[in-house]
């Protein structure tokens, strides 16, 4: 059995659940709305990073991306759904790879569209404050933002497979993102720079002064996501369904 049929099945399962389509829509709406708001209100601060301001909606928006990844996996852990899935696709590693791909592709596509819309919406409010941004910087941030949203949903997907619970995953990740990163705040040069969300967000800034650059930061987040997926995949392979 090859990979394509498993991927096809997982793609059908994702697009036929309204809650998952709703989560992707929420990524777009929340990120764009909060970015537009930030662009319209925040222009007086001289230390402002106009690029991050334009994409700051991704901070609340990523919660929807995390929910998408967590729920897409957690739907398999309800009432024996995983048994039906694994009876149809008994090669578990292949199945989990298909699941992760079916989560990654729509979150990347929605993430890229979201980042572009957020940038445009915020620039409408920022006006002259954003004039210094180069095309390269903006392209890098939009692509990076899309990849970041994808990586965060994959991180959540891996954790959900490990914990076998969407609620468990969200109650771990959402406080982590809202509280821990917020408390540590803008201080750089600490281990916090290497947290999955902080590291990946470097790509959203026009200037950065931490140990990580835009792409190395994303690579660190990718490493976190890969670790979570490996742990989740290991759990799926090893445990009784």
């Amino acid at each position: 059995m090859t990979f394509a049929p498993a991927l096809h099945a997982e793609w059908i399962k994702i697009r036929t659940l309204r809650s998952l389509c709703g989560a992707l829509l929420a990524v777009f709406v929340a990120t764009t709305a909060f970015s537009a708001l930030a662009g319209a209100s925040d222009t007086s601060d001289p230390g402002l990073d106009p690029l991050f301001t334009a994409l700051s909606g991704v901070i609340p928006g990523q919660i929807a991306a995390i929910s998408f990844g967590a729920m897409a996996v957690a739907s398999e852990f309800h009432g024996g759904a995983l048994r039906v899935t694994l009876a149809a696709t008994p090669r578990r590693g292949r199945w989990f790879a298909a699941k992760a791909t079916a989560i990654a592709v729509p979150s990347l596509v929605v993430g890229l569209a979201t980042a572009l819309a957020a940038l445009l919406a915020a620039r409408a409010g920022l006006g002259g404050a954003a004039d210094g941004l180069t095309a390269d910087e903006q392209t890098r941030a939009v692509v990076g933002c899309g990849v970041y949203l994808m990586l965060m949903s994959l991180f959540a997907a891996g954790l959900a497979a490990l914990l076998r619970s969407g609620v468990g995953t969200l109650s771990l990740l959402i406080p982590f993102i809202l509280v821990v990163s917020f408390v540590i705040g803008d201080k750089t040069g600490t281990a916090a720079d290497f947290l999955p969300d902080k590291a990946g967000q470097v790509v959203l800034y026009e200037t950065h002064d931490g140990p990580l650059g835009p792409w190395t930061g994303l690579a660190v987040t990718a490493l976190w996501s890969a670790l979570a997926l490996l742990a989740g995949g290991w759990s799926v392979r090893r445990r009784d369904a």
Binding site: K13, S19, G80, V84
Partner: peptide, 9 residues
Amino acid sequence: LDAQAAHGS
């Protein structure tokens, strides 16, 4: 195996 296996939504 289990009638509850299909996702309700």
